[in-house]
Nucleic acid binder design. Structure first.
Lengths: 189, 189
DNA sequence: GGAATTTAGGAACGATCGTTCTTGACTGGT
DNA sequence: ACCAGTCAAGAACGATCGTTCCTAAATTCC
């Protein structure tokens, strides 16, 4: 039924993730997207509806296919040190969660749909870190203290990645993560 | 020497801080600034040179007059619980450090001048939190562990404020801060 | 092998972007 | 009183914004 697509939809979404993560929503123009995605204007609007539509598609894909694996790896970690290492380890090939970070700062306050996606994802990260925490402190399971600590731990992870983007070295980031994990691991909570 | 100004420069800068913090750099137009600052276009360009010039002026003012007092209060705190409370306490009247947060995320990666201002400010926050930490653990003074922990603590503060902006309740934020402080206060580091 | 349908390729839209220019009102120094 | 210098007010600039429209090319169904 008609001419076949000259581009792959998921591939375009992945490219959009990179562009939006690097330049932000307001800092990215449709021309930027057209150039970076290799998808031409008309196809972009036909497929995603609008710039905002492509953004939410990109954010959802990012959360589901790039952040979720990180969350799963954290939840499966045997201890907090390993969990923090898995979520903070930098690797050029790894997608990370930069778009989530930018979305939380600049889109969540003005876009309820983005806010919901971000909040849900952060709750999952809280729970995953809580699982790693309980793996070392089984007695603390279900306590309010664990909940408060995981809220803070997720915040720490976000903040460390934020600092890394703003200039803090990978070494400092890694050691900071290790220090926090050590503090939570070698003492009761 | 000519007609006197019809606006106050500091007052305009403070208004710019609010606008940039709320809408971000790319999300703020010069028209927005003209409308919010009550300063007319020509005067804005005569006084600040450009939109970017006003932004860096606003960021420097924010850091010096709004974040620095927070840093000083943290450094002067007798314990970490008090320090965390002082930096996280929300109050409609308090300026907070939202512009710093947004600058770190969206401008520092692309503007070396902003990156330098942000990095310097975060280092000061690190040192202030370190002071509060050492107040409770004098023996840890100067150790690499303190440095790593303060890097993480500043990250936690940034992350918690980020989460608050994205929807996390003030109660959760406060309790998360308290839980972290408790963990650092009641155990050796 | 048309007819119908979908995409690609661009031109083009009005609106808004950051910035500059023009004009006239106002003030201080001589 | 007058000139020099600063400011306010707003029109206007070219560039870019997000979006739409038009035409040609490519594919499936009959």
């Amino acid at each position: 039924m008609g001419r076949p697509r000259g581009f792959d939809e998921d591939q375009a979404v992945q490219a959009a993730i990179g562009v939006f993560a690097e330049r932000g929503y307001d800092g990215t123009s449709v021309d930027d997207l057209v150039a970076s995605l290799g998808v031409h204007r008309n196809s972009l609007y036909k497929t995603f509806g609008s710039k905002g539509g492509l953004y939410t598609r990109a954010l959802r894909w990012h959360v589901e296919h790039q952040v979720r694996p990180l969350v799963t790896a954290v939840a499966a970690a045997g201890d907090i040190t390993e969990a923090m290492h898995r979520v903070l380890a930098t690797d050029a090939a790894k997608p990370g969660f930069d778009l989530l970070l930018r979305a939380a700062v600049e889109r969540a306050p003005v876009d309820p749909e983005v806010a919901e996606v971000v909040a849900q994802c952060l709750r999952e990260m809280d729970e995953a870190l809580g699982r790693a925490l309980i793996a070392e402190h089984p007695g603390a399971d279900g306590t309010a203290r664990v909940e408060a600590l995981t809220t803070a731990l997720t915040a720490t992870v976000l903040g460390l990645r934020l600092r890394a983007r703003a200039g803090t070295s990978d070494t400092q980031t890694t050691e900071a993560g290790r220090a926090v994990a050590h503090q939570l691991s070698h003492h009761e909570i």
